[in-house]
């Protein structure tokens, strides 16, 4: 099954985000070996150069590391994962706040609605 990608952003950025999401969701466990570039490219139905570029970006951010002969692995550094999780949460919150502002809600309105929602959930 090809990975779901949208039209507007460069594909390697989307691949990078999907792999990050998989790391956080535990689909890829800390220290786990990643499939080869070719296999990942085939799985995602994207070009191998694109997959390579996405993995290089992930390496640069320290989430993935390469062992010269044996392949690519997910980092075992838990602080990196926490950092990533917080970064993604922050992006989502900013997006949420922006959407709420477009609806014309003030911070107080947002807080009130959030608390109402939490109350109903529990």
């Amino acid at each position: 099954m090809a990975w779901i990608l949208d039209d507007s952003r460069p594909i390697y950025l989307q691949i990078e985000d999907l792999i990050k999401a998989n790391i956080i969701a535990g689909v890829y466990q800390p220290g786990q070996k990643l499939p080869s570039v070719r296999d990942l490219a085939a799985e995602a139905a994207v070009n191998p150069n694109t997959m390579q570029k996405a993995l290089t970006e992930l390496e640069r951010s320290g989430l993935v590391y390469t062992q010269r002969t044996s392949g690519r692995f997910i980092t075992e550094d838990v602080s990196k994962m926490t950092e990533l999780k917080e970064q993604i949460a922050r992006e989502q919150i900013q997006l949420f706040l922006k959407n709420m502002e477009q609806l014309g809600l003030t911070r107080d309105d947002i807080r009130r609605l959030l608390e109402k929602e939490w109350k109903e959930e529990s």
């Binding site: 039209d7 507007s8 952003r9 594909i11 390697y12 694109t50 570029k53």
Partner: peptide
């Protein structure tokens, strides 16, 4: 490159 097009135009090659 496809990435260049998406980065600069903000749209797919098809579009």
């Amino acid at each position: 490159s496809v990435d260049e097009i998406r980065e600069q135009e903000g749209k797919s090659v098809d579009a």
